[in-house]
Design a protein around this nucleic acid. Structure first.
Length: 330
DNA sequence: AACTCGGGGGA
DNA sequence: TCCCCAGAGTT
């Protein structure tokens, strides 16, 4: 992995933000893109939001991208481009929590802070047989104390790296390699046949179902799009005119809603295409929907949406759900 | 403390 | 389908 052994705090920070709740294989190409285009933090700081969000497109958790830019600009302007070098200062940065601060502090500056990520939680829970819920406040505190005690204070960077690698390669979530594990004889979970029960993740989140009907409104061969600014999924990304429903609706019902909302007017539109039903499973929501392509014979009255050509669409960041439609859009 | 925030890949 | 990923911010 290109960030291993990396000592530039900027690149370490970049890799850590990208890898939050993200698999290495998924984040790799994004890291490469960012490092190649912005070798130093000042370069990232002066790029437009639009371009950076386009680079982040498809990676998910888009507030990471917003915070990434905010932090790059903060360090560039207020710190003369010099990355902070204490745990406390690093922790203050937007988008940097206790894990990321410990990772940067130990990897870049060899400061004695133990990382506590999914890997470390798992290894500690199993080896020591800790059944406390890892997402509770008490559990986090408890695990953090143990992690900090175990840390090799003379070599925190390598220690942290090694423990995470061990969790990722040997002490895996599913089908861990217990038979070749050097901790086999001491691992409380293995001895008690409880490997699959640890770590203990408490709550299960409820998944809500939503139906998104996107009206791709076309006027004079250009499409109306808008930025999602509300507090919801895909904030800061772009979309077509959205009609959201709690349940499945027929195309006729959606068209009726559009008329009622004065988005289209009788005699001044033409339905050109209705896509197949599509769905996307997010960690906390299940999205169903369709794209309905409509040719408008007169422009929209609202100023909320902007009109862009098919070619210009490629400059905007869209959720995957819409990008899948864009491929079918002529 | 509980909720919210994406998308991908393996079983 | 379910799980889980080098978690953080908000309510």
């Amino acid at each position: 992995m290109p960030w291993k052994g990396e000592k530039d705090p900027y690149k370490i920070w970049l890799s850590e933000i990208i890898l939050q709740q993200t698999r290495v294989e998924q984040g790799m190409s994004y890291y490469q893109k960012f490092v190649q285009q912005f070798p130093v933090i000042q370069q990232l700081a002066r790029v437009s939001d639009k371009k950076v969000f386009k680079l982040w497109e498809g990676l998910g958790y888009y507030t990471r991208c917003k915070n990434l830019l905010e932090t790059a600009r903060f360090i560039s302007k207020n710190k003369k481009g010099v990355f902070p070098n204490t745990y406390e200062e690093i922790l203050q940065l937007k988008g940097v929590g206790t894990y990321t601060a410990a990772a940067i502090a130990s990897f870049a500056y060899n400061l004695p802070h133990a990382v506590l990520d999914g890997n470390v939680f798992r290894v500690l829970a199993r080896v020591f047989g800790i059944g406390k819920e890892i997402d509770s406040t008490e559990g986090k505190k408890y695990f953090n104390q143990i992690a900090q005690e175990l840390l090799d204070k003379k070599n925190p960077g390598n220690y942290n790296q090694a423990l995470m690698d061990f969790g990722a390669i040997v002490c895996k979530p599913i089908a861990p390699l217990c038979l070749v594990c050097p901790f086999q004889k001491h691992c409380m979970a293995y001895i008690n046949n409880a490997v699959s029960k640890l770590p203990n993740k408490g709550k299960k989140l409820k998944i809500k179902t939503r139906w998104f009907y996107f009206l791709a409104l076309k006027y004079k061969n250009k499409f109306y799009i808008r930025q999602r600014v509300e507090k919801d999924i895909w904030r800061n990304l772009f979309e077509f005119n959205l009609i959201e429903k709690a349940k499945e609706n027929s195309t006729a019902q959606i068209i009726n809603t559009a008329k009622r909302n004065e988005i289209i007017e009788k005699g001044f539109y033409d339905v050109e295409l209705v896509s197949p039903k599509q769905h996307q499973q997010l960690s906390h929501q299940k999205i169903y929907g369709r794209l309905i392509k409509i040719k408008l014979l007169k422009p929209l009255l609202t100023k909320e949406m902007i009109l862009v050509s098919k070619k210009q669409l490629t400059q905007y960041a869209f959720p995957k759900f819409i990008n899948d439609y864009l491929k079918q859009l002529q």
